[in-house]
Each structure stands twice: as C-alpha cells, then as structure tokens.
Lab assay of single mutants.
Amino acid sequence: MDVFMKGLSKAKEGVVAAAEKTKQGVAEAAGKTKEGVLYVGSKTKEGVVHGVATVAEKTKEQVTNVGGAVVTGVTAVAQKTVEGAGSIAAATGFVKKDQLGKNEEGAPQEGILEDMPVDPDNEAYEMPSEEGYQDYEPEA
C-alpha cells in the first residue's frame, strides 16, 4: 500500500510541476504579447503594419512553449490582441483601416495563427491545408 501511495504522490508532483510550467509559459506569452502591443503603439504610420505582424510573430513563438489545451486559448487571445492593436492603430490615425491585415508588401496577414497546427491532446499534428499553395516548377 505504501508503494501505491508513494507512486500516487510522485504522479501528483509531476502534474503540479507540469501545471506550473504551463502557467509560466502562458505568463511569458502574455508578456511578449504586451511587449508587441507597446511596440505597435510606438510606431509611426509606416511601421504600424509591420508592428502588428511582430506582435503576432512574438506571440506565436511563445505559444510553442505552452502545451496542451492552453495553446488553443493563448492563440485565440493573441489573435484578438493583434486585431485590437490594429483597431487602436486605425482609431489613433497611425494607419488607414484599409491597410490593416496586410503586410508591407500588401499581402493579407489573416491566418497567421489560424494555420498553425495545434492539437490540445498532444496526440497528432496535421499540416495546414494546401489550398493556398501553388506547385513550383523550376525553369529549365
């Protein structure tokens, strides 16, 4: 019985440690998101679009440190934060509304985080759909 109880105690310690790591990862992701939003706020009209992409990228980098179902929630929060940063930029006159959601080359930025393969159960990952990809044929 002692062996059984000791095993359960060790398992509990492992769960607590994993929860603490997840909590730490979420806190880091939130900190990076805040950094990115402050970065966007300090940019001029020309830099705002690039700044919004930076927020998304920093958040995406930190999301990889967070495991399990938390990833889905962090990704949703990050996307809403990026959308909010863009709205703030438009409201303050840093950028025109028609410039939001495009990178410096004018290509749409939507789907940055949505296409990231995420499995809350950590069982399997699927690649994003290939609808947006084109076949590449090298020139002879």
Rank of each mutant, 00 (worst) to 15 (best):
A19S: 02
Q79G: 05
Q79M: 13
E20P: 00
E35T: 09
T64G: 07
E83V: 04
G132M: 12
V3P: 00
T59S: 05
E57H: 09
Y136A: 08
A56R: 11
K97L: 06
P108W: 05
V70P: 01
T59K: 01
T33Y: 04
V118E: 11
N65H: 12
D119G: 12
A27M: 14
L38Q: 06
G84I: 14
P117M: 09
A90N: 15
L113E: 12
E131R: 06
K10S: 07
P117A: 08
E83R: 13
A124Q: 07
D121F: 07
V71I: 13
T92W: 12
V77I: 13
E139K: 08
N122C: 04
V55E: 00
V37L: 14
K58C: 05
N65P: 01
A56V: 13
M5V: 13
Y133A: 06
D121R: 04
D115Y: 14
F4D: 01
E126P: 13
G101V: 12
F4K: 00
M5G: 01
G31S: 12
Y125I: 11
T59H: 02
A11I: 15
V37C: 07
V49A: 08
L113C: 04
G36M: 15
T33W: 14
P120Q: 08
Q109F: 12
S42G: 06
V3I: 07
T54G: 07
N122F: 03
H50V: 02
E57K: 08
L38T: 02
N65M: 08
T33G: 02
K58F: 13
V63H: 01
K23V: 09
K21P: 00
V48G: 01
A30I: 07
K10H: 04
K58W: 14
K102G: 15
G132H: 06
S129V: 11
E20G: 04
G36V: 15
E13W: 09
D119Y: 07
E114L: 07
G47C: 10
Y136F: 15
I112E: 06
A124T: 04
A56L: 14
Y125L: 10
K97S: 06
M127G: 04
K6G: 02
E123L: 06
E105G: 12
K97N: 09
Q79W: 07
E114K: 13
V77M: 10
Q24D: 04
D121L: 11
K43L: 07
M127F: 14
P108K: 08
E104I: 07
A27I: 15
T22M: 14
T54R: 10
G51M: 14
G36R: 10
V37Q: 00
E83M: 06
T75V: 12
V82F: 13
T64N: 07
E57A: 10
K23W: 15
Q109E: 12
E28A: 11
V49H: 10
Y125S: 07
G47P: 01
K43E: 00
I88V: 03
K32Y: 10
L8C: 02
T72A: 15
D2Y: 10
G86Y: 15
T54K: 09
P108D: 15
K10G: 00
E46M: 15
M127H: 11
T92N: 06
Y133R: 02
G25S: 13
K23S: 04
V52A: 05
S87D: 07
S42V: 12
V70T: 02
V26M: 15
G36C: 09
P128M: 10
S9T: 04
N103Q: 08
D119I: 02
V63I: 05
E105N: 10
A11R: 00
E35L: 09
Y125D: 10
V52F: 03
M116D: 15
V95M: 02
S9A: 05
L113S: 13
L113Y: 11
G31L: 13
K12P: 00
V63S: 01
S87F: 06
A140K: 11
G111K: 12
G51K: 13
E61K: 12
K102A: 14
G68A: 05
E110C: 10
A78I: 15
P128W: 09
Q79K: 13
V66Q: 01
E61N: 12
V118D: 12
V95D: 03
E28V: 14
D115T: 09
A140S: 11
A69Y: 13
S9H: 07
V52E: 00
N103K: 06
Y136L: 10
A53D: 02
T92Q: 02
L38P: 00
A85P: 04
A56C: 15
L113K: 09
E123N: 10
G47S: 07
M5F: 08
Y133V: 05
V55N: 01
V77S: 02
E104D: 07
A27V: 12
E61I: 06
G101H: 04
D121M: 05
Q99I: 11
K97F: 15
V3E: 01
Y39F: 15
M116R: 13
E20Q: 05
V48P: 00
E131N: 09
G67K: 06
G31C: 01
G51P: 01
E46F: 10
L113T: 12
A90W: 09
V70D: 01
E13Q: 06
A27H: 07
G67Y: 06
V95I: 12
H50D: 04
S42R: 11
G73M: 12
G84M: 15
E46A: 15
L100S: 15
K34N: 01
V70E: 01
T75M: 11
K96S: 05
D115E: 08
A30C: 08
D2I: 15
V77C: 09
T75G: 10
P120N: 05
N122A: 05
V74G: 02
G101Y: 14
K23G: 02
T64I: 13
V74H: 01
K43Q: 03
E83W: 08
S129P: 11
A11F: 09
A53Q: 05
G132Y: 09
D119K: 04
G86D: 03
K21C: 03
A17G: 06
K97G: 08
E130R: 04
V49D: 01
D115V: 07
P117F: 10
K6F: 04
G101L: 14
A53V: 15
V49L: 15
A19Q: 01
N122H: 12
H50F: 15
K32A: 14
V3T: 01
E35K: 09
E110G: 11
K10F: 08
P108Q: 11
K58G: 01
G101N: 03
F94D: 02
V70C: 04
A76W: 10
Y133M: 08
Y136H: 11
K21S: 07
G106H: 13
V63M: 15
V63F: 04
D98I: 04
V40E: 00
T72L: 09
V37F: 02
K96Y: 09
V49M: 14
G86H: 12
G31I: 07
V71N: 02
G36L: 10
T59P: 01
E130P: 10
V52S: 01
E28P: 01
M5Q: 01
G93V: 03
T72M: 14
V16W: 11
T72Q: 10
I112T: 11
L8V: 05
P120D: 06
A107M: 15
E20I: 11
A53M: 15
A69N: 05
D115L: 09
V16C: 07
G47H: 13
V55I: 15
P128I: 12
Q99L: 15
K58S: 05
E46P: 02
K97W: 15
E126V: 11
V37E: 00
